[in-house]
Design a binder for these strands. Structure first.
Lengths: 121, 121
DNA sequence: TTCATAAACCTTGCATGACAAGAAAATCAG
DNA sequence: CTGATTTTCTTGTCATGCAAGGTTTATGAA
């Protein structure tokens, strides 16, 4: 009853979820562009290098979708005392899409940063 | 039958729609932080200054939502030979949220740009 | 063998926001 | 009254992130 559902923390958290839409796909393609990687490796690598936490419930459906769209492909390999790993790489089409995404991303961030000037931190 | 639904243009366009989620809310708050504005004014201002096209079907539901969350408030004024205008301003809570959004946005773009280094254009 | 643990991957269902398409309200000119 | 212009609003569809829970494989202990 006295529960407020709109505390600032929640509002920002919800917004962050929305912000990540689309961005995560870009991040995965960028990561795979560097080298072949398997799921868990992607998660930990991105957490370390970009300080972005991607949950498994987000990553695996995303990887399946990208594979269905033939932007990435996979091969199986042994795991380290566990289930087998699925290594993913970019396909030529994936590489092509990534190259098209980069200017789109740049334009968007440049535009926002233009509006951002003047809004004091 | 011979129709390909996955031409690169469509793929990028779909991705762009996803990318805008959350970003548009940020952009609107940034714009209203500068000065009071009405809907059409926001659309044309953002198109001019940020080269981002916000459609009416996107803007008005967004404004209504922000008002319901008490992040912005509105007042009616006469239109220029047309329907009355609804001028929006940030509430104190809106200002507060915006200040919290700025570092979140910066961290995200910095992270992505870190991954972006090495991916040739 | 059975159990526990760890590594790795997958599935379901919900919440949410962007947007196309179209409608509606208000004003003015003819 | 009709049509044009300005401005706002509504409905329905689609795609994505993610919490929560489940499955598979291997290994080592009891």
């Amino acid at each position: 009853m006295t529960r407020k559902s709109d505390e600032p923390r929640d509002v920002i958290a919800k917004w962050e979820v929305q912000l990540r839409k689309g961005v995560l796909e870009f991040i995965i393609l960028l990561s795979l562009n560097e080298r072949e990687q398997y799921g868990f490796e992607l998660i930990s690598g991105i957490a370390e290098r970009a300080a972005i936490n991607v949950s498994e419930g987000t990553l695996y459906p995303l990887l399946l979708r990208l594979q269905k769209e033939e932007l990435i492909s996979s091969r199986l390999a042994e795991g380290d005392g566990g289930a087998p790993r699925k290594y993913y790489t970019l396909t030529p089409q994936g590489r092509e899409l990534l190259q098209a995404m980069i200017p789109t991303w740049s334009k968007l961030t440049i535009s926002v940063d233009r509006l951002l000037h003047g809004a004091t931190v």
